[in-house]
Simulated assay, not measured.
Amino acid sequence: MIRGIRGATTVSENSADEILNKTEMLLKEMVEENRVEPSDIASILITVTDEIDAVFPAKALRRLVGFTFVPVTCAREIPVPNSLSHCIRVMMTVNTNLAPHEIKHIYQERAIDLRPDLRLTNSTEL
């Protein structure tokens, strides 16, 4: 079954190092929490807000073992007034046996407030 896994994080500054480090951390957690292998991934779409342009966040995949052939692209988020700034969002499309309610969507840094409903759905405390 093909499923989407969502993730988001924020950076405090528009620097290549921070963008790549935060993107790598996010991708690693998305993969680990959902037991995904690189060969399970159909594609990854990464979007960024207007403040982020020091580096393509997709470059972070090159740091991950086994991700050489994973298709990835970057795009700009819609500039909605008063939306979360300095935000990197990821949509990972994967082949998995997990049911939709079993998918663990990952939100880090200031992005944790984007979808509190998904964080609670995946909580082990429920």
Rank of each mutant, 00 (worst) to 15 (best):
S15Q: 06
R119C: 08
V90R: 03
A42Y: 12
A99L: 12
H105G: 11
Q108M: 14
A42V: 15
V65W: 13
V55F: 07
V72Y: 02
L114W: 10
Q108P: 05
A60V: 05
R6N: 07
E37T: 12
T23N: 00
T68N: 15
T10G: 03
V65R: 15
N82C: 01
A111T: 08
C74V: 14
M25D: 12
L61E: 07
M92A: 13
L61H: 01
D117S: 10
S15Y: 09
A99R: 11
V90Q: 03
I106H: 07
P81Y: 02
A16T: 11
T49I: 04
C87T: 11
I112E: 15
V70P: 06
R76A: 07
M25P: 03
P57N: 00
S15L: 05
I78L: 08
V80N: 10
M91A: 08
A111C: 07
D113W: 06
I88Y: 05
S43M: 15
V90I: 05
A54D: 04
E37F: 15
T23D: 01
P57C: 00
R3P: 02
S83W: 04
A16P: 09
F56N: 09
R89Q: 12
S15C: 01
E24T: 05
I103C: 12
T68F: 11
A16E: 13
S15I: 12
V65Y: 08
R115G: 08
V94P: 10
D40G: 15
I5N: 07
G66Q: 09
V90C: 04
G66R: 10
H86A: 00
I46C: 07
R89P: 06
A60N: 04
I41M: 14
H86L: 08
P38L: 13
E33V: 06
L27Q: 03
P79V: 00
N82T: 04
T121I: 10
R6D: 04
V55Y: 03
V31P: 01
A75M: 08
P79I: 06
D113I: 02
T73W: 07
K22M: 06
V48E: 00
S43F: 14
N122Y: 09
A60Q: 02
N122T: 15
P57G: 02
M25F: 01
A60K: 00
V31C: 03
T10D: 03
Q108A: 10
H105L: 15
A42T: 15
Y107Q: 05
K28G: 07
E102D: 13
A99S: 11
R115M: 08
S39E: 13
R62T: 00
S123L: 11
R63G: 01
H86C: 00
N97C: 00
E109W: 06
K59R: 05
A54T: 03
F67G: 02
M25E: 15
V70H: 04
E109T: 06
I112D: 12
H101C: 09
E51N: 02
L120I: 14
